[in-house]
Design a protein around this nucleic acid. Structure first.
Lengths: 202, 202
DNA sequence: CCGATACGAGACGGTCTCGTATCGTAAGTC
DNA sequence: GACTTACGATACGAGACCGTCTCGTATCGG
């Protein structure tokens, strides 16, 4: 569904420059990083930032929503599949990956922007959810299931709740506080504390 | 700093209607509930929604930012001070209060909106942080300290981290998913799971 | 070389909001 | 009843963006 993956091969004439595609998306990301809200972005502003004519943008995307979808898609990143030794280490790896992403100003700002507008533009949210969140959520669930089977995790805990117990603190910090609140070692501390519990030894 | 709390008592002439004050703020909240972003709100739209002339708004607030500050202040709510019997019950009470607030569509949407724009309008964020978040955060910390002293909470756990372990899952659900993902009993389950831990009995 | 298409720039008419100003009327004080 | 201020409505010019269109130029296939 990317602009450039049109089915018609368009033999004649000057071909569209893939570099221009990238420049436009890059400009949109840059503006979002700088604090613009999704609603505040304008095609005009993006074209200006990219050093591109407005028509060049409209030639590729029918409007802002379609462009935003591709902007979100451009953030896809191969989630580093865990498959480590212990469930504990896999959980740490997943949270550590989240931490590093949250540290990147770009993703933190984007996450906030998209979340806000999610129920204004449902489709925008669905796209982000499917592209970025779903994959990571699935791999997390797999690790938790493995932990339950191997006995590292009690069988009576709801895995859905558990997923939020691990990821919630990291997400809340990334969204509520500023970037700095994700210190080194946070992933380990979250995982170990949730695993061992907070009450003194029973 | 509220518009109506001016120091000059203004004896002569027709007094400003407090009902109009309320109608304007109410209209802004209504628009935010309906999915408008903070940046997308316009004085013109708010006045229209309130059935009020633009000049009537500008007579009270110098601009959108000042109005927004009062809108946020209008959400203040006396946080129900815990002081229960067990630390566990106090924690449940705090989270249950959060859950009920998150269920109110109004607060959920507002939270998202404000978060996004927080680093565009730093002052807006500070206001919300101080008015709404700080108080609850302080009372939570007090409960945790009490738990550490009474022995209900292990002494080697960072209280700052712990606060996020309890509140993070609730916040993440309220912000990421839609309203429905905050079922009855969620507060108890979060508190008990974090307290007891996830590993099988050691 | 030729025809076709993309490109950057920006003109264009339209809509929306801004913040100010000016109506005539309403609602208080003195 | 006279005066003063608030009120809803609306006009106003300024400015941002919209989406379309047209320049002159650049870059491709044939």
């Amino acid at each position: 569904m990317t602009a450039s993956e049109s089915s018609a091969p368009r033999l004649r004439g000057r071909p569209r420059s893939p570099a221009t595609d990238a420049a436009i998306i890059e400009a949109a990301l840059r503006l979002l990083e700088e604090g613009a809200s999704v609603g505040g972005l304008s095609i005009e502003g993006i074209a200006r930032e990219a050093g591109v004519g407005k028509a060049t943008v409209y030639r590729r995307w029918p409007g802002k929503d379609a462009l935003m979808l591709d902007v979100l898609r451009s953030l896809e990143e191969p989630s580093p599949d865990p498959a480590g030794v212990s469930v504990r280490d896999d959980l740490v790896a997943i949270l550590e990956f989240m931490r590093r992403r949250g540290l990147a100003k770009r993703n933190s700002a984007l996450l906030r922007s998209v979340i806000t507008q999610m129920h204004a533009h449902k489709e925008l949210w669905r796209a982000y959810d499917e592209n970025v969140i779903a994959a990571r959520r699935a791999s997390l669930r797999a690790v938790l299931r493995r932990g339950r089977e191997s006995g590292e995790i009690r069988a009576d805990v709801d895995l859905e709740l558990l997923a939020d117990l691990f990821t919630g603190p990291m997400l809340a910090r990334a969204m509520l506080h500023e970037w700095k609140e994700l210190p080194e070692g946070l992933a380990e501390r979250i995982v170990d504390t949730v695993l061992e519990g907070v009450s003194p030894r029973r």
